[in-house]
Design a protein around this nucleic acid. Sequence first.
DNA 1: CTGAAAGCGCTTACAG
DNA 2: CTGAAAGCGCTTACAG
Lengths: 339, 339
Amino acid sequence: MNGKSPKIQDVAKVAGVSTATVSRALSNPDLVSDKTRTTVLDAVAKTGYRVNRAAKNLRKRQSDAILALLPDLGNPFFSQILSGIESVFTTSDLSLLVSDTKGIREDNLLDYFMDMRADGMILLDGAIPRNILSQLQSSSFGNRIIFACEWKPEFDFPSVRSDNFGGAVQAIEHLYGLGHRKIGHISGPRNNVLTKERLRGVEAAMADLELPINREFFIDGGAFSLDAGAQAARSFMEMSDRPTAIACGSDLIAMGFISEISRRGLKVPDDISVVGFDDIEIAGSYIPSLTTIRQNRTQIGVLAASYLLDQIANRVTDNAAQVQEVGVKLIARQSTAAP
Amino acid sequence: MNGKSPKIQDVAKVAGVSTATVSRALSNPDLVSDKTRTTVLDAVAKTGYRVNRAAKNLRKRQSDAILALLPDLGNPFFSQILSGIESVFTTSDLSLLVSDTKGIREDNLLDYFMDMRADGMILLDGAIPRNILSQLQSSSFGNRIIFACEWKPEFDFPSVRSDNFGGAVQAIEHLYGLGHRKIGHISGPRNNVLTKERLRGVEAAMADLELPINREFFIDGGAFSLDAGAQAARSFMEMSDRPTAIACGSDLIAMGFISEISRRGLKVPDDISVVGFDDIEIAGSYIPSLTTIRQNRTQIGVLAASYLLDQIANRVTDNAAQVQEVGVKLIARQSTAAP
DNA sequence: CTGAAAGCGCTTACAG
DNA sequence: CTGAAAGCGCTTACAG
């Protein structure tokens, strides 16, 4: 507070012990006697001492920070995941660093480890270039990395994700249960793992239910965005034969779709039922409120962060599942009804 | 890559110079001769050297990190601001640390400076306790703090914010222009600075336009959330005399409100016009699409980050306005019409 | 259980 | 323009 901050030397002097003892009392209390510990703690309180992280980290060769790497920091979808991550780190002593992949395309992710900026990484982007991931994997930091939400199939980094396949199945079964037999799908970004899993789920469920798969009812949205949904709505309007229900790759797609077909005079769910995917905050208040697949995003963040925590503390349970799938569930609202 | 990372020693050996020269060539190129610089840079490339941040930071007494402190990491509203902040830091060498005020209530914000975890802070929460802010202000780090979006009036930390007052004025003038004379307002969280500024704008505009202010038309929403809007809708439905238009404290309030009155049979904008505030991503695709006040959130993030950058680099321009107001503008959509 | 001493990997006066 | 040397503030073998 007053000018310069106290150092471990100052505490040692006040407590009448060596700096080594102060250090031990603070970070490894069992190593010192009860009496010494009390004395040191008193001195710490008296001086207002706080360990200098840069010094500690240099000495211990660590950074006390984890990087969360998002595809796009501006995308609100990730805020709850970040919140989940942070809730774990805040109780430990780790700092949460964030960045997005736009900023580091050229750069090298490995640099974060090399120059000691991060002790671990949570990758929320499945589109990280192969060569960068290879470098990470073959480095000595390969075990401090985990994918969350998205992932890259060719790499066997551990991963926490929603049951995307199962979610899509639930969506189709819900529509089928309502009586729909002509069901379409609007998919997300091409080559995205989530897109593929959800599409796979849609197709598997339809096959199971012995529904004919009409390829014309499958629209390539190309993105998870509102715009993609609106664009898909235009394709939809031009169909000569139309499905009575649509399962969308995301809530934003669903909302963009509903918005655009409403503008063109169709009504949801009267003319067509629509299911989203994600259950973003607004889904329940959209008009009509959106039937969708709820992902537990906070939980994904918590699990990913906890894994890293264990990994860094070397409390590694090798038996732990490499892939953790978090359950999803369908929330039935007003955007779906009998045909 | 191969086992241990190279240190400045290794580079010095390869280049045939001292570590001091390597350090200078890297961080202060003007201090060495062209020839030396080239030699050093070659050696850096050859060895794959990256400076160790912990060591550099310990020596320079800095952390190379800025903390962004949000009220709630899970709130999607902040993602664009974070994106703006990050876009500035990514070009410099700073890391972006995030946390939310839930995690540090007890803790002391000053600790981030004391233990060298952050060189500066962007506070996005106007509800940080007075005593914590006082500590910060009277510390030697007081000049490395800036408020963004929200702020605390009693403290004269610099601040970047939207023109909340002007936005509210625009909302009222828009409704007036459409012919509305009975205008209401749903406010946000009590004691929140944004709530107060926007309310002040609403009242000032109505006074200017010589509209009678009917206190019964002013609903205390208590939060910026969807729930607050839905709750307000219930109060609205019970009014014997109702306004023909409502200016809301946020888009979420507006959407919650519209959602709830729709459920009860009223139509927007036929029965009532509604204006939001924020222009969140979904506003344009909401049904009806929402007339609202657009805040440039990315810009707020960029300005706050730039200020801190200058401050840390000591490129301080004392003449710089302490309060930077970012302009807002009304986006007219379908939720408003003539009464 | 405790202390003296080395060293983590840098940067920067200081001297030339 | 360059180098030798000190030192940033810790932690941890090592020795007792």
